[in-house]
Design a protein around this nucleic acid. Sequence first.
DNA 1: CAATTAATGGACTCTGGGTATAAAATATTC
DNA 2: GAATATTTTATACCCAGAGTCCATTAATTG
Lengths: 306, 306
Amino acid sequence: MFKTYNKSRLSLQKGDIMSAKRKQIISAAHQLFVDKGFALTSIQDILDKAGIAKGTFYNYFESKNQCLKAILESISEQVEQERREIAIGKEMSDEEVFIEQVTVRIKMNRQHHLLTVFETVSFSEDSELKLFMEEQHRAELQWIGSRFNDLYPDKAQDYTLDYAVIFTGITHHLILTWKLGSSQELDIEKVIRYALNSVKSLSNNQSYIIDPFLPVSWLDGDDNSKEVDITSVIKRLEELNEQLTKQKGTSKQKELTQFFIAELQKTTPRAFLLEGVIMSTKKAFHQTRFEHEVKQITEKIWKIIQ
Amino acid sequence: MFKTYNKSRLSLQKGDIMSAKRKQIISAAHQLFVDKGFALTSIQDILDKAGIAKGTFYNYFESKNQCLKAILESISEQVEQERREIAIGKEMSDEEVFIEQVTVRIKMNRQHHLLTVFETVSFSEDSELKLFMEEQHRAELQWIGSRFNDLYPDKAQDYTLDYAVIFTGITHHLILTWKLGSSQELDIEKVIRYALNSVKSLSNNQSYIIDPFLPVSWLDGDDNSKEVDITSVIKRLEELNEQLTKQKGTSKQKELTQFFIAELQKTTPRAFLLEGVIMSTKKAFHQTRFEHEVKQITEKIWKIIQ
DNA sequence: CAATTAATGGACTCTGGGTATAAAATATTC
DNA sequence: GAATATTTTATACCCAGAGTCCATTAATTG
């Protein structure tokens, strides 16, 4: 029952030293997630395996989701680290280096049975976790794109992002499909070579595709910040209001809900009003059936008013 | 006598007339899943929206997952239907027809906000649902492959499956990435054309790729039935045993667990023995913390002994 | 009408995430 | 090494939500 996590951790944290306990928990949780899957692993399982008390767990992670996030983070760091090491003293234009580097992440994810970030972007309804995963996806695409530029500086150019997407798309889908049809071990390197060749072939034969689909700057974030769909928010508010009526909603809750509906329907909702009311709304729904829903809605409203 | 689970009632086949109630439930659930997401929609929500009682719900679906499955099934049927209609009186070799047909599914999935089957193959830990989704994925790939054969009978050939995978991979990943970078409506048709052009370009330029990656027969199922990894099963059994020791496991339970471990470690586990014990094992764990885990394990053992 | 079948609604169980907290164990500081 | 601060533990508890049960009430139908 004593933790024996070998696997000499190379994941050095930026500044903070991960406490041994934290590592211990992560290691246990990680193993369980791999074995049984995230959803089927209960906190209790983690506690048992790590040999700790519940309180301790919540000392280090504020939720199961956050714990998963921590694991994913640590994996990502490992990946970065290894990729850096691979590149040491090598030419960045060397295809073999690239292939090896890409392999790292895929192997890591498969060995961990944690589906690739790309594989699961939307598997969670936890908005923070989701954002995190989207960010991971974005980062990976950008990395691949930049590597393409290293490899084929003349060919890639405006098409880098396109190629990155095509490359990951092919890779990912080949792996997925392989799993569908066989239990045999898949040679990841072969997949990557295949995908890379496809992209090269495309780049040599652009007669079919005239314009890049995605501008290279696509992922630069900045402010293509997703706009929130106001009407959908209103819809949810109305739904909420309806439920409040049916059930034992307090009059204050209904009042707040209706206020939001009314205000959002105006051509120019007054931001300062909304902003002021969001806080008290959250409070009014604290510890009720609707807390989560309200949290989500207010988050969106928050985004709307910026 | 009132039967809670009447199989013939629960699994209506295509031919059956879906009762109005069932439709009503599906429609409500569907809408909610779209609005709030699957995980965040509670059964209660569905009941409220559909205006029915809990009992009724469980008369028609044996679980929330099964309800989702029903929705997905109905969508798939719609897709098939529409695709058939599109093709009526048209040439199967017409690219435009193909494009329109493909669009159907994607639009359907996006309009429903239910991630494409391909997008979510592994989002659930419910093994039946998972199998169902895998099956969907398989079917879609096969369909696309066969359509490629219609379109490019001379080019496709041994590469059909490869191309199908590449095509869906590109399509899916483009959509995914688009969502990452912008909230603007994406022109699905444009995506499909882009992916199709990519595949065409590849097929015109096979110098890079000599052999198809996936044999066309890959998905024919039959007997590339996944083998179950015995060692992983043993691992889980040991884990279970450990937990039983720590907690209030009955001696019978431990006995059974240890029997499995011992038997599976033999070079040739005796199938008839295992088979016989599985049933009583399930019983021994009925209504315990470990029921689910045991169910999973025995399922795997079942597969091992065929 | 009588018998069957469907629908209701509420009470109930169980699991699992998360909180709270007092007491015990460790660490830290002087 | 005592005094203080911090972690850890253990345990009891809250709550939501899935799923079950069942007695009662419609609704169908032969």
